[in-house]
Design a protein around this nucleic acid. Structure first.
Length: 271
DNA sequence: AAGATTGTTGCTTA
DNA sequence: TTAAGCAACAATCT
């Protein structure tokens, strides 16, 4: 469940710690978690430096000194843990050793995540195929209107489509729809101008609030220090189907399937 | 103990 | 071209 706010929290967490530290060792515990040949992967990284970090959507990018990039996709259960201590666990798949004896652990329970070293061109191609990152400045109300355009898609499926907007997953899609007071199953062509504006504001509001609270931990997400995120305390519909709605105080939070995903919404607050 | 869960990709169908 | 639905990937929890 690392979505945009969780990946951003991890990025901020490792940024200052790993930059310009010499990599002196690589341990590929599970070679399928590296999308390059694991020998090549290690060879590229040893004696190299991570000089900057970036994020687009849920993709974490570590720029290397030789112009290549180490990318990490966390999938559903990926973690990046930075520590001076030995933190190797059952689910540790890759370990990066730095010269100052600190380490970066890539853990992944369900194995949907991976790391890969790619050249600049491939990175640009990947980025170009992704939609706009909604916390960037160029994600304007007009831009969002353009994305909706004449589409007739189900609202939630549009929010989850990484080729249109990059970074929203199942948790934040539901929370954004609640904030906007819109039923996730609505078709976007039925939204009024006012509703679109409210939706746009909700996307930015929820994602920024979640980043400021270091993301959501509901199962195994932790930041680079191994700490849980606080946004779990702000969730209003996600996993609240047995509870009273925070807003209308009715027991009206429904759980349905939309766009193939479990979806929660308040039948009384959302229209 | 089968079903739910989560993100992404790719295939099929309309 | 656009969109929906589904399977696949894998492990864990209920």
């Amino acid at each position: 469940m690392p979505e945009l706010p969780e990946v951003e929290t991890i990025r901020r967490g490792i940024e200052k710690k790993i930059i310009n530290k010499k990599i002196i060792g690589i341990e590929v515990v599970r070679k399928e978690s590296v999308k390059n040949n694991s020998i090549q992967f290690a060879k590229e990284l040893i004696n190299n430096f991570i000089i900057d970090t970036q994020r687009k959507g849920k993709l974490l990018i570590m720029e290397l000194k030789n112009k290549k990039n180490l990318i990490a996709r966390l999938g559903m259960t990926g973690q990046l843990i930075y520590s001076a201590e030995n933190q190797k666990r059952k689910h540790t798949r890759i370990i990066i050793y730095f010269k100052d004896r600190t380490k970066l652990y890539f853990n992944d329970i369900r194995l949907f995540g991976y790391m890969k070293i790619i050249a600049e061109k491939e990175l640009n191609d990947i980025k170009a195929k992704m939609g706009i990152d909604p916390v960037e400045k160029n994600f304007t109300a007009n831009k969002f209107k353009q994305i909706i355009g004449k589409r007739k898609r189900i609202l939630k499926s549009l929010l989850l489509d990484q080729k249109l907007i990059a970074g929203i997953g199942n948790i934040y899609a539901d929370e954004i729809c609640f904030e906007a007071k819109l039923i996730p199953a609505r078709k976007v062509n039925t939204l009024s101008g006012k509703e679109i504006k409210k939706l746009y504001n909700s996307i930015i509001k929820i994602l920024r609030l979640a980043i400021n609270n270091r993301g959501t931990s509901f199962s195994n997400y932790v930041d680079s220090n191994g700490k849980k995120g606080n946004f779990s305390n702000f969730l209003k519909v996600y996993q609240k189907e047995k509870e009273y709605c925070r807003n209308c105080k009715n027991r009206s939070i429904k759980k349905i399937t939309v766009a193939g995903r479990s979806t929660r919404y308040c039948a009384s607050c959302q229209k």
